[in-house]
Design a protein around this nucleic acid. Structure first.
Lengths: 209, 209
DNA sequence: GACTGTGAAGCCATTCACAGCT
DNA sequence: AGCTGTGAATGGCTTCACAGTC
């Protein structure tokens, strides 16, 4: 495992490969070639091999990859061989949806804590998790060994909430608010802007006008 | 306007720039330099200038860009100088959240039609839009001149729904289901996998174990 | 014969650096 | 003096092509 610098695009594809492999396991397939995976997820076979090569030699020349084995490797590489407790801040429309979204749980992401500042939301339940006031952040992070935070508050509150997360010892933040956030180098930050994706479609449609 | 081949990354950044400029307009700022924008959104100033250069010369040497003017150009380039009617299929957790999400409306994306197959959901309202049966798809697309579809159905139904969208004349699809979809070349497809983003964080956290 | 793993080549996006304008 | 616009240089990801292995 020479982990020097892995392209982010590679990591994202590994995630996609792992989902495809899971599908193959369900179908009872025992072996795949890089070409099969490539076809299944829409990339080139060379790309698949190169991506895997960053992490080791998982296949057998002339044969391919054992599905269950490769799946296990990928899940381990992605850090998905464990459950991640997550704190979600902002129980509005988007936050509620994410809290209830099954897709996270399926991949081992457990939203164990949901916080908000709105008294009307505090005390309500999303699934079986109760919305609590922002003040308990530090305690919950410690208790549940939380390292990942999801920010779904309005733009105006985003930086303040982020500072608190950092303060509480959170190591990685997924930001859904449309605000550029400042975090120390030691904290990993990813931004997701749902509108951007529609805007790329809009751009492409608008091209031929 | 030489629109030969615009990097997708550029389009995504333009979207971010436009949001930043909107913020500046609110603050009453009249002029910005590429350096200001760069600082505001977290890229290099050369990057900002290169991105803009794909579409024309919007600035004044020695001065910078007029905020309102540049904003107008970007919105036009992104196709956001118009309202886009959108059909959303799948009124589950995620679909409901997206239907109610304010961020889309703010950028001119109007979810005018929401469809589902579940009788329990049909007839209910999300905001002021009623959930209707999938069968009315073709009619609604025609009536409302819909060109964009958003897919938030379970993976097992995703390809079927996609085929129907294509059939109905939809030109661009935003897919939130974790399934590789097949569409004709004439249809633009973008995939959003919410879990992938968490998995990239997970990967990076798991690196130093 | 089939398929992996990988150096080399190709390609594309970003950064550099500076001429050109105000 | 300040800042844009852009060719040239750089860096990094993807594709090619083939030796190596089963």
């Amino acid at each position: 495992m020479k982990i020097y610098k892995i392209p982010e695009a590679t990591v994202m594809r590994l995630s996609v490969y792992s989902r495809f492999l899971h599908q193959l396991i369900d179908e009872g397939v025992a072996t795949v070639s890089s070409g099969d995976i490539a076809k299944g997820v829409g990339v080139s076979s060379a790309q698949v091999r190169k991506d895997l090569a960053y992490f080791g030699e998982f296949g057998t020349r002339g044969v391919g990859y054992r599905v269950d084995e490769l799946y296990g490797h990928l899940m381990k590489i992605l850090g998905l061989d464990q459950t991640w407790n997550i704190v979600l801040i902002g129980a509005g429309k988007l936050g509620s949806a994410l809290a209830l979204y099954q897709g996270f749980a399926e991949r081992g992401f457990h939203i164990s804590t949901i916080l908000d500042v709105d008294p009307a939301r505090i005390g309500t339940k999303l699934g079986n998790v109760e919305v609590e006031p922002l003040e308990v952040l530090q305690d919950r992070v410690k208790e549940n060994n939380i390292r990942v935070g999801v920010v779904t508050v309005p733009a105006s509150a985003a930086q303040d909430v982020t500072d608190r997360l950092v303060q509480a010892g959170i190591k990685a933040i997924l930001n859904f608010s449309p605000r550029i956030l400042k975090v120390p180098n030691s904290v990993i930050l990813r931004n997701v802007d749902l509108s951007v994706n529609l805007e790329v479609l809009s751009f492409n449609l608008a091209l031929n006008r």
